[in-house]
Design a protein around this nucleic acid. Structure first.
Length: 715
DNA sequence: AGACAGCCAATTTTT
DNA sequence: TTGGCTGTCT
């Protein structure tokens, strides 16, 4: 049984998987099978008789966590039940959900994502009478995030603050943390920080978790920040069984506090650690690996490592210098079209750029070339306004102290509660030391000194929230969501607000409902909604993938085009003035190159307009670093019309445009809340339909067919 | 309270 | 170029 788990592994992979229990560091080059090693190690531990619930496997993305759980399950089946395979944030959220006191939180606490955190921070800055020009919330948020990543709390921040500016930031930090606490909320960084704090200061809880997790495994270890390193250290304190897999050469999140030095310090932190290096690559041709090796060899701070593969010599990279970004995009499109005509599937192709802003000309050129494509990481699902609005309602029901959620929904849909009312409410709440909703409930609107009209609006809002609250404990999350939509008149609001976008927004709400459907309790649904970025949601549809180098990490494609190889673009201008900046950019370029299995296209533009202004950047230094014998220059002027006609183009279709149920007038239906009724009218609304249903006792109600949960009755 | 026009600023970003 | 915010007008 144990031996079986090692059969198809190479010697280095075997050594890692079967290492005796204790600290193990696996330095895994790109494409060297690190996920396979990690999942096999979990299977190995289970096969050795370890309980699943004693194992905590940590990743950075939900996608990676999902894949790992899936792969473990494939190997060990139901013996994987009870295993914790989570992101750092999800693992901490789960611990805090089980033990809110670990982080000084009360049950029902909220997770604030970047947007919520930024809003709270902005309010905090204004409240301190500081200028948001001088203290831009975005920049301050980044600074505080970095501080938290380094476990610098407000007290420590104050101690090390030099100069007036830093001292004021320290004041903001302190006030912001107080505001979070009052709202019974934790931001992303706090999820880690609060658990670390709790494990440090609460021995009885620390003991529980340290006993529970006999083994901690960490993927993408080079991306862990000091707070996360400390978390791993604390969790593994009792058993010292840490299995960390990482590649310093792929550390591309230094700007967010990731600390690849932590990889290098692993052996000090965990004495007696075994270190295994995986250098055999199972992904790319040797030409691609030699290009990547040559680039990364220019970096100083790294463990020397030389990737090789048995997948043949391969073809040199094709390089093209375009006149401008449009020319560049057209060249890429022409090349891709040729490759597709020759049989490369479109979803085995990626175009990688440094910044999202570069995608537009590529989208245009691919459209013109008739190639289907998808852009990864535009506006993300959970960042869409309608999704956030509805989640805010749900959050408020779970956590009445969540002022950020309250402010978000206070006047959405518009109900006559304007800035004046909001400010009066915020001030009064602050003065009386309670949250806004609590103040309204406990003291009424009378204490705010508002006009009768404003008071009435606020009272109506409180009545609405109370109605929803009463239902909250009785309904499943998806049903509660329906109720929120119905009671607030949210669909009508969307339609009035912007009829053009309403169709897409309805789809989003339907999708939110579908994901709510998977949950039995509100807290877990909200936790998931806050922690998932739904990057995965873009995956699946066929087409050329357009994405940033950051988003490309962990993915692989037959063909990769890396565009915009100019000084100031890639490497990014900002990196040129930062210490270690260019080295991180070089790692990013290395990540981009190593995504390719068979072929690489590299391009640059002599002229590129950015924000309307033309820029003339020299070609990227990274291009100069490539071995000349592995780079071939493309013929100048090769264009779309030189490429062969397409054999076939796969056009993505949206599965959600299909109707779920053919509702018809006169149909008898059952609704969980309103009971039995009959359909009075079916009105087409874009891709959706609006149903007018007359209920016995509940009167006439309107729903969108894609969202309402109805059971068809006979007759 | 809400609509609108002008102004400024602008990486990457798993969570 | 876009989007987000501020201040003014209705």
């Amino acid at each position: 049984m144990l031996e079986e788990l090692l059969e198809d592994l190479n010697p280095a992979q075997r050594e890692a998987v079967s290492a005796p229990v204790g600290p193990v560091l696996v330095l895994a080059g790109a494409g060297s099978g690190k996920t396979r090693v990690l999942t096999r190690r979990i299977a190995w531990l289970l096969a050795s008789g370890e309980r699943p619930s004693a194992i905590l496997a940590i990743t950075f993305t939900n996608k990676a966590a999902g894949e790992m759980a899936e792969r473990v399950r494939r190997v060990v089946g139901e013996r994987a039940d009870g295993l914790w395979v989570f992101t750092f944030h999800a693992a901490c959220a789960r611990m805090l959900r089980l033990h809110p006191e670990l982080g000084g939180l009360r049950p029902g606490w909220s997770i604030y994502d970047q947007d919520d955190a930024r809003r709270l921070l902005e309010r905090t800055i204004r409240r301190l009478d500081l200028d948001t020009k001088r203290f831009p919330p975005r920049a301050i948020a980044a600074e505080l995030s970095l501080a938290k990543a380094r476990l610098v709390d407000p007290e420590r921040f104050t101690e090390v603050a030099t100069g007036l500016y830093e001292r004021q930031v320290a004041t903001i930090y302190r006030a912001y943390q107080a505001a979070l606490r009052e709202a019974n909320a934790a931001d992303f960084d706090d999820l880690i920080g609060l658990v670390v704090g709790g494990l440090t200061e609460r021995p009885e809880l620390a003991e529980y978790w340290q006993r529970r997790f006999r083994h901690v495994l960490v993927d993408e270890f080079q991306d862990a920040n000091p707070a996360q390193h400390e978390l791993v250290r604390l969790l593994a304190r009792e058993h010292q069984s840490v299995f960390a897999v990482g590649d310093v050469d792929q550390s591309i999140y230094g700007f967010r506090g990731a600390d690849p030095e932590g990889v290098l310090a692993f052996e000090e932190r965990f004495p007696g650690a075994r270190v295994v290096t995986l250098e055999q690559n199972y992904r790319s041709t040797n030409a691609i690996l030699e290009l990547a090796n040559a680039v990364i060899a220019q970096n100083r701070r790294r463990y020397a490592k030389h990737l090789f593969s048995e997948l043949g010599a391969g073809e040199p990279a094709l390089r093209y210098q375009a006149s401008d970004e449009r020319d560049e995009a057209q060249w890429v499109a022409a090349q891709l079209r040729r490759l597709v005509a020759d049989g490369t599937p479109v979803d085995e192709i990626a175009v990688i750029f440094r910044t999202n802003a570069q995608s537009r000309p590529l989208e245009e050129a691919l459209s013109e070339a008739g190639l289907p494509f998808r852009v990864v990481g535009g506006v993300r699902f959970y960042e869409r306004r309608e999704v956030r609005d509805l989640l805010a309602y749900l959050r408020l029901l779970e956590n009445p102290d969540d002022d950020v959620a309250l402010v978000r929904v206070l006047n959405v849909p518009r109900r006559g509660i304007g800035r004046g009312s909001e400010e009066a409410l915020a001030a009064a709440a602050r003065l009386r030391g309670r949250s806004m909703l609590r103040l309204l409930r406990e003291e009424g609107v009378g204490v705010l000194g508002l006009t009768p009209r404003q008071e009435r609006s606020l009272e109506r809002f409180v009545a609405l929230v109370d109605t929803l609250s009463d239902a909250a404990s009785k309904l499943r999350p998806a049903e509660l969501l329906d109720l929120v939509v119905a009671e607030t008149g949210y669909l009508e609001y969307l339609n009035e607000d912007d009829p053009i976008t309403v169709e897409g927004r309805l789809e989003n709400i339907a999708e939110l409902r579908a994901s709510a459907e998977e949950f039995e309790d509100l807290a877990s649904f909200l936790e998931r909604a806050a922690l998932i970025s739904a990057v995965d949601e873009a995956m699946g549809a066929g087409g050329v993938t357009l994405l940033t180098a950051h988003a490309a990490k962990g993915l692989e494609f037959d063909v990769v085009a890396v565009v915009g190889l100019e000084e100031g673009v890639f490497p990014h201008a900002r990196s040129l003035v930062e210490a270690e900046g260019v080295e991180e950019e070089r790692r990013l370029f290395y990540v981009a190159l190593t995504r390719a299995r068979r072929a690489l296209l590299l391009s640059s533009a002599r002229r590129r307009s950015s924000w309307g202004e033309p820029l003339y950047n020299p070609t990227s230094r990274f291009l100069e670093e490539l071995p000349t014998e592995l780079v071939e220059d493309a013929a100048v002027g090769e264009r779309l019309w030189d490429a062969p006609a397409l054999v076939r183009v796969v056009t993505p279709t949206s599965p959600r445009t299909q109707r779920r149920h053919p509702w018809r007038e006169g149909q008898r239906v059952f609704h969980a809340r309103y009971g039995e009724g009959s359909i009075r009218a079916v009105i087409p609304r874009g891709i959706d339909e609006e149903l007018v249903i007359a209920f016995e006792g509940a009167g006439e109600r309107r729903f969108f067919a894609s969202m309402v949960k109805l059971r068809a009755l006979e007759g």
